[in-house]
Nucleic acid binder design. Structure first.
Lengths: 158, 158
DNA sequence: TATTGTTATACTCTATAACTATA
DNA sequence: TATAGTTATAGAGTATAACAATA
């Protein structure tokens, strides 16, 4: 895989840019992705819940119960940080911490019904907001977005 | 022909879904947008800088100098929060705080060359990462993403 | 001895309330 | 009196270091 040197910014030294069209594509997609993500993130079930807290609940909803260490690893924070977040969510009644069956050093962290409800309601609001927006588009535009979503997932996973 | 991968809600209660295709489109786009945004956000010039700090520098780079209040308003945080972030960025040499010309209660906050360099380098890295990913795609896939970016911006602005 | 989780401590980022300076 | 910014204080979220329990 070859590396491309990009010079799109305002500190351009004057050297001509070899691939102007591709650069424009990347910048446009980057900005559009950030703006749409920001709008979607604003749609929440519990307004006082931070993104980090919600991400933990969402991970448990999608991937099932975790040990503390695996949860910290998945969210890319340290174990003490995750321990603190988990404690707050436990106090709020959104998840439970139970001793692991086999290895008693570990704990099993799982969603409660209340925690699952928060995830479901947040997902519902975000999708409802987006759905309403999609309804204002043409069929071709919607097909373009659906196809783009597949490609974006592929790109994000590389 | 593109197949949309269904990612139904695992807590579906059995209630019939009135618009399964549209919801699938929305869910797919929502998840793809969040994942790509997360990957892009990880590409930074200064690794220790928080998203909030970088957002301030980016706002100054895009929209020019601000008073403290306008900057807080734009980033949707309180004036004391923004004041603290601005103080840290000022200490780090990324922006300057100067008295306002007309109204001496106000301060004018502007990027330094170092601050602009951080913004430029971060943008460069994100676009370079994305550009490399785009190179692995077909021309049609790239066209789809370029068209989708336009639509996503339109959707985000509604 | 190594691993898993937790506690101790510290710094950033957020907020609300109170204060200073200026209009 | 109202506005712009700042300071005081507190809670959330992050980290590293040290500790306890278990394998």
């Amino acid at each position: 895989m070859l590396t491309i040197e990009m010079t799109t910014n305002s500190t351009n030294t004057g050297r001509p840019d070899p691939t102007p069209v591709f650069i424009s594509e990347a910048s446009g997609l980057r900005m559009a992705t950030f703006r749409l993500a920001r709008r979607l993130r604003a749609q929440r079930a519990v307004d006082s819940m931070s993104d980090g807290q919600f991400a933990v609940l969402a991970a448990l909803a999608i991937h099932g119960e975790h040990t503390l260490g695996r949860l910290a690893e998945r969210e890319r924070v340290t174990a003490p940080s995750m321990n603190r977040t988990v404690s707050l969510l436990e106090d709020a009644g959104y998840l439970t911490r139970t001793p692991h069956e086999d290895d008693r050093r570990k704990v099993t962290i799982a969603l409660t019904d209340a925690g699952r409800a928060v995830v479901d309601e947040t997902v519902r609001r975000r999708d409802a907001w987006l759905e309403e927006a999609l309804e204002g588009l043409s069929p071709i535009e919607r097909e373009t977005l659906a196809a783009a979503a597949e490609i974006m997932r592929k790109v994000a996973e590389r």
